[in-house]
Each structure stands twice: as structure tokens, then as C-alpha cells.
Design a protein around this nucleic acid. Structure first.
Lengths: 109, 109
DNA sequence: GTGTTGCATAACCGTTATGTTATATAACTG
DNA sequence: CAGTTATATAACATAACGGTTATGCAACAC
């Protein structure tokens, strides 16, 4: 669960989630990932290190570049953890409420 | 996604996850939640505040006590976010690797 | 009323996180 | 080789986090 600490902590940052969103469309180099953000390149480098430590991305050298892509492991760990709890809110107490909420125009994000 | 910031950050702490695990077995008062931990009661109170702010738990007064229970909203938000990414690791690149990993003795934490 | 219990809040403190700028390293380019 | 590009690391400032103890307040018990 150290693992989960790192994974959830990594996911708690909007810049890092944006990086993951970008990588969901395909791999990218560090520079490409940094471009959309107003923060410095070193800051991005550190975000990437956090993501890598959380097994949310992988990096591999490609000549002068470092190509990044999603890593299933971290995502899966987080997802599995949450799946355990899905049980509790899907078949016990909050069923009605969820139902009402869902049928009221769910916007994503 | 401020919401997601708060939710994932709340989930990143092992004490808070343990609290959620306890609440998955049913509601509990603050004192009951605090008992298993070696940390002070005020520390628990703050963890609960974080969890409540993240919509991961709810608290309601019950006389002298405050009863806590899981709140579906936060859990669901986190889960939905991850579901988006599930696509990318379940039907694209890491399939083989996941397969190998899975069939190699998966231990659940 | 007084005392006790259950919990929250305040003030403080050390650690960790996130940003910055400056610098280092490694790979390409000529 | 020297110069440029891509990325990482170092050193530092500030803010956020998580713990502590001390205290406040509401609800119960007498």
C-alpha cells in the first residue's frame, strides 16, 4: 500500500492528470508534454518522475529524447482498490441517491 | 477537477484509506474510528475533515456522537476518472504484459 | 448547577511537495 | 572539435501536510 500512497498522491495533481490525459492519446516526449503548461521544464521533469515512481508512466530513451507512455500498473492498482469499494456504494446504502443523481444529467468533469 | 484533486489526495494517505476500509463494514463514530490508530484524536478529526471535504465520507450528529459513513460521491468520481483510462490499458498497448503479470500469482496486497 | 465524555479547533513544528533559476549531462549537428 | 537541443539534477524559497499538545464546546449524567 505504499504503492497506493504513491499512486493516489500522483493522481492528486492536476498537472499530472493532464499529462496522463495527453498520454492517453499516445506516447510523447518530455518536451511535447511540457509545452502546454505554463510551468518550467524542470517542474515537468519532476512531475514525470513522480508519475514514473507511481508506475503511472514509463520512460525510455530514444536518442536524444525520452519517450513517455502510460503504464498500466499504477492505473490498475488504483482501479482495483476502488473496485473493492464499488461494492459498498453500489449495493448498500446510497443506491437511491446515486440513482437520482445519475438521472439528472451527468456531466463528465 | 478540483474535486479530483481533493479526492485523490485524500486517498493517498494510509490512515484515511484504513478509515474508509473500516467504514466499508458499516458506520462508526469518531471515537470508534480513532481507536485502532496510534495517533491522537485530533489527528483523526482532521483526517475525517479531509475525507468529508473529498466527499468520501459523511458525518451527522447523533446526540453526543458523530456518526460517519462512506459517501458514494467521492468514490464514484475517482472511479469514473480511472474508468476513462481503463480503456487505454485494457485494449491497447500493455495487454500482453498485463496478461503475463496476472498469470504469475497475483497477491492482493 | 458540576463533572465527564465526545469531538473540534487553535497554535505550533518538522517534513514533504512544488515551484523557481542555474547548471550539468548526453545526444545530435556541423 | 564547438555549438545546440533535450532532459535531468542541484540549490533554494515557500506552501501544504500531518503530527503534537492545549483548549473549547456541546451533550450527557448526576
Amino acid at each position: 500500500m505504499q504503492h497506493l500512497d504513491a499512486t493516489f498522491a500522483a493522481l492528486a495533481d492536476p498537472v499530472r492528470r493532464a499529462i496522463l490525459a495527453r498520454l492517453a492519446q499516445g506516447e510523447a516526449t518530455v518536451g511535447e508534454l511540457a509545452k502546454p503548461f505554463a510551468i518550467s521544464q524542470p517542474a515537468i521533469s519532476r512531475h514525470l518522475r513522480v508519475l514514473e515512481a507511481a508506475a503511472l508512466i514509463r520512460r525510455e530513451r530514444d536518442g536524444q529524447h525520452r519517450r513517455c507512455r502510460l503504464d498500466a500498473r499504477g492505473l490498475e492498482r488504483a482501479s482495483e482498490w476502488l473496485d473493492f469499494y464499488r461494492r459498498f456504494w453500489s449495493d448498500s446504502f446510497d443506491r437511491l441517491e446515486r440513482h437520482l443523481k445519475r438521472n439528472k444529467g451527468a456531466s463528465h468533469d
